[in-house]
Amino acid sequence: MGRNPSDLVVFVGKRLLQLVAVLFGVVTITFFFTHIAIPNPCNVWSGPRATEATIQLCIHNNDLDKPPLTQYFSYLSKLVTGDWGTSPLGVPVLPTILTRFPQTLELVFTALLFMILLGIPLGVVAANNSGRWQDHIVRTFYLSGWATPTYLGGVILSIAIGPALGLPRTGAFSSFPTFPEPFHMSVLDALVNLNFSAAVDAVLHLILPASALAFINLGIATRMTRTSMLEVLPMDYVKTAKIKGLSDFLVLYKHALRNSLISTTTILGITAGGLLSTTVVIEEIFVWPGIGAYAYDAITKYNFNGTIGVVIFFAIGVVVANLVADVLYGLLDPRVEWR
């Protein structure tokens, strides 16, 4: 037995090929949905006071007078060459998304970090004291997060709790950054410019939106950890760890948690993909300059190219998050064979 590293490469390769198929499907579906649901967006694009001539010009410029299939293929061929079109106001889609997507990633990663650092230990505590008061408190905590509608949780944090703690409520920086932003991630950019006050500022700005995002999804990490810990704790190898004379902490976190993480990572991978779409609401509330806010904007303004672009990035995010979870799963569980 034993596993070959090359198997992992093949595994990842296969999954990336699948990604191409997923992207193709997603683009196709979104394209036809948008174009069928709103057959003539030029009325909107051209503004309320547009003349018939301008509307006709808009229709012509956007190929809307051609049959849908022709539109679809010409769009597709441009898409693969990297020309993702422009918004109705003429702003190119791809560069916009490329500057905004990292900001969202920053938000999502921070939220994930909160979920892992808080959610998993809470799950361990709950499982280790199952049925006792610790368990009930933890459950109340994460259920309240779960039961809160996304926007409500965000609004409460931004209006009530944020100001009370003196945390900035909106944006990524207090003032417009005066340094180059190679990563488009506020904290990282500030750090590479050695601008530490800006970095602290950026971190402070991250706390509220990331907490909102994390609080809502915390229950998933906690619950999953609790459930799988309850499965692992009665196993003989936990007894083996105890009988060696290891401290309770090591028994729990080194031996039991390590094995229950195997199922928790899968769920976290799925959740991480889901977090991306949750950012649509959170970024609107906190005026976060990410792809979520852009998605909202694109959809409400009939920005077809923008919408498809966002959908592509969301799809990539979901697939990659799942792939990372699967790879982590294999790394955590030596019994898994790469298939």
């Binding site: 003989d236 190898y237 083996t240 009988i243 031996h255 955590l332």
Partner: peptide, 19 residues
């Protein structure tokens, strides 16, 4: 545990940590 009292269990399948 360990240095004073140690123990071997019934099921060798489960008594070592798979990870």
């Amino acid at each position: 545990r360990g240095t004073a009292v140690s123990m071997i269990f019934q099921e060798p399948i489960n008594s070592l940590n798979p990870a």
